[in-house]
Simulated assay, not measured.
Amino acid sequence: MTSSNTLAGDAGSITRVAGIEVGHFTETRRPTGCTVIITREGAVAGVDVRGAAPGTRETDLLHPSNLVDQVHAIMLAGGSAWGLDAATGAVRWLEERGIGFDVAVGRLPIVPAAVLFDLLVGDMRVRPDAAAGYAACEAASTADPAEGNVGAGTGAALGKIFGIQRAMKGGIGTASVTVDGVTVGALIACNALGDVIDPDTAQVIAGARTDDGLRLRDTRRALLRGDPPQPLLAGTNTTIGVVATDAVITKVQAHRLAVAAHDGLARSINPVHTMSDGDTLFSLGTGRSGKSLGMMVLATMAAEATAIATARAARAAQAITTAEGLYLPAAADLR
């Protein structure tokens, strides 16, 4: 595993976890899209919602005390609440292949989902739908997923606390960590209100820019010295993602893994889990390694993979200018 302060080298990916496939659908009419994480054989799953403005589907069934013990895919999408429809396309794709929860008269695919708000980037009337979710499934494979302006990260933006005009381009990133034959991987679509921070150096990678637009403002320090944030529309941000492992874990442990993964977000985004974010992380356990390292090590790996994947989401992003004239530079443009 390489350090998170570069895109060079091999940081791994969530598909290094046995039993995981990833597919992107990237919309061409405006910057938006969706990303599906498929586990054809089913996986134990959990979720932890930390942001105060989430957009989710089928998260209640993941509570450790509830019946369903496995899911078959997770859908991440842009388009805010409209993007939840992408999960319907994944359900159809999985059903056509006989994948799902046995309900005696057929198989019901379980596909929880989370969305991020990218409606300020381009024409908001264009958003991921069921056809987009189906197309993401068609594109799914075990290859390392593309990063940056693809899938659910296509319309993502970072550092909007002083206004979208001072924000930067966000995106999607992935990474994995392997210890003693067990792998934990993360896939993160970063559309945060706050700045993205290098988890190793604590330096700002991307986020709010200064008034001249040429430098990083450093949101944490700006807020602490009294710079007033712009009035915020609730729910116009959000970081969503999945952490997966091939370790053998229970549903209770899957929940704790999702909780621990948020520690990785806290290391790589500041401020994080705000009233205007809907930060949601899912966890998956395929059990394909046939063993577990114990929750202390798995939780540490989950936080590490999440932190690196989040930093990569910012570093892999590319600048865009929308038809409406909104310019979002990338991290590479401000170096």
Rank of each mutant, 00 (worst) to 15 (best):
A303Y: 03
E138T: 12
F162R: 05
D60T: 12
L119G: 01
H273Y: 10
G235M: 05
G98T: 09
G55A: 13
A18T: 12
T210H: 03
E21L: 12
A206I: 04
G46D: 08
A309S: 08
T183N: 02
D85E: 15
I240M: 09
T32L: 04
V71E: 01
E27F: 01
V17M: 03
V17G: 01
L120Q: 14
S276K: 00
A45S: 15
T286H: 04
F117G: 04
R209V: 05
G235D: 04
A247Y: 02
E138M: 14
A305N: 01
A244W: 06
L326R: 11
T2W: 01
A314D: 10
T322A: 11
R166C: 00
P64W: 08
L120C: 11
R166K: 14
D180W: 02
P128F: 07
G42M: 13
G106N: 08
P229S: 07
T183S: 08
P229Q: 05
L61Q: 06
A330T: 10
A319W: 00
V22K: 07
A313T: 11
V47G: 02
E304T: 15
A87D: 04
V242Q: 02
R225P: 00
P199S: 13
R215F: 09
G98F: 09
G213T: 10
I320H: 06
S268M: 08
T28V: 14
S65D: 15
L281E: 03
K160M: 11
T274R: 03
R315A: 13
A316Y: 01
A157Q: 09
A258G: 12
V248S: 04
P229I: 13
I37F: 02
P199T: 12
A130H: 12
A45T: 11
V179W: 00
T26N: 10
D200W: 00
F282W: 03
P329D: 03
S268G: 08
A136S: 10
G23M: 08
T35K: 08
V248N: 00
S276H: 15
G23V: 10
I240P: 04
A307F: 09
G122E: 05
L232R: 14
W82R: 14
R221T: 14
V182W: 01
I161Y: 08
G106M: 11
L223W: 01
L224A: 15
V36S: 12
T142V: 13
R315V: 07
S4Q: 02
G159W: 01
D277P: 02
V259T: 14
T2F: 07
G213V: 12
G78H: 02
L187W: 03
G89V: 10
P54K: 08
P231L: 13
R220H: 13
A247Q: 02
Q165V: 11
T32D: 02
A90M: 14
R97G: 08
P31K: 11
L108Y: 04
A234T: 14
